[in-house]
Design a protein around this nucleic acid. Sequence first.
DNA 1: CCTATTTTTTAGCCACACCTAAAAATGACA
DNA 2: TGTCATTTTTAGGTGTGGCTAAAAAATAGG
Lengths: 220, 220
Amino acid sequence: MAKSTNREDHLKALYALGERKGGSDAWVATNDLAAHLQVKAPSVSGMVQVLQELGWAEHRPYHGARLTPSGRSLALSLVRKHRLWETFLVQRLGFGWDEVHDIAEQLEHIDSVELVQRLDAYLDHPEVDPHGEPIPNVHGDILDKRVLMPLSELPAGAWGQIGAVQDDQGQVLDQLQRNNLGLGSVIGPKERTTLPAEGHQYILVTPWENADARPQTSAP
Amino acid sequence: MAKSTNREDHLKALYALGERKGGSDAWVATNDLAAHLQVKAPSVSGMVQVLQELGWAEHRPYHGARLTPSGRSLALSLVRKHRLWETFLVQRLGFGWDEVHDIAEQLEHIDSVELVQRLDAYLDHPEVDPHGEPIPNVHGDILDKRVLMPLSELPAGAWGQIGAVQDDQGQVLDQLQRNNLGLGSVIGPKERTTLPAEGHQYILVTPWENADARPQTSAP
DNA sequence: CCTATTTTTTAGCCACACCTAAAAATGACA
DNA sequence: TGTCATTTTTAGGTGTGGCTAAAAAATAGG
């Protein structure tokens, strides 16, 4: 009993929702996993128990699940592969940043350590993917010193610069593109009203106290 | 009921063995498919019937199976993807030609028409893969005007130039590499005795009547 | 604090794709 | 032509990973 595409998908979801809930000791609800994976709760319930038997997750019945260190390590390797492939698709093949998620979702399951090493070198060891998300290194460490907060939490009147966009479906990415905004773009009061409010929580910005402090930037 | 990795593997095997047996109207034996796919005969028997229901293969019980035109088209698209990915792995990522088969075997199942188009363009529309095998175009046509014959069928005393190597396991590729031979290398009586005879049928050469007619070439 | 709603798990079912063992068809050869 | 070995298919079973329906636990509200 070992790796499979479905188990990897569950590991990744467990990691993603765990992070969103505040770190590696957070418990993730079965229903949340099911919604994220587009699957029914009983399927998740079963899979989580398999992951537990494999030593990759911890399961407290009727409470939730979370990754073990080895499960976390596997999940981070998947995140690494996903983000490297997205970088390849955008930087080398010329895909738009809103077109690569689904393809990377398939590519991340390709099993070859040397392929990942060579891809990483071929891309000049990128630190972030096309959406500004940090790429874990080969040890699974994420070294990201940027100060980022959701646009939705940026104080009213404050300015910010787009550092990352957490949007798997591509709707927010698409919205930004239509407004000629990308990584590095400056967000002021005008942009905040232009962009649909539902997307603000997925747009991570580096904040400034006031508009005068903002640096020179350009649209992508 | 549609595409799946396993069904695609069976389609590809059916295509490969059909070609080896002499073309699109050749019947392929269940046992041959099973051996090629590293699976038992009953598994193939079942899968072939599924492929028949899907309209991708024709099955004459106790006789064999062969692809329908639409099955053939699907198989050729898989061959195209496989060979494009092999080209990418060798030309762009720097893999050795004996290291790429297994990885391409995974990559060929990635489902994205646009990805294949962009990859093809990125590689400058290659006509052959790193093993000299022709890459079908987007319509599934193989336009390969080279005259190639297995080294095993080259008349004794005749010379030839390596045009392609049909070796999924990599043993023959490895042998050639150890003797500093590659695509374009000239094969004479000396090389024929050096290379293990079992591999000769997988080495395709362009023959010449005599040694004087051979062109200038170099090892890879 | 006790009941009602929500969440989660268990139970039981289905499809896919493999397997072994047994039956059926084919083909080879005396 | 009849028998026997080989090939193929069918029958029945396993593991994976989904599903629905029902049971069980947790949570929320009066």
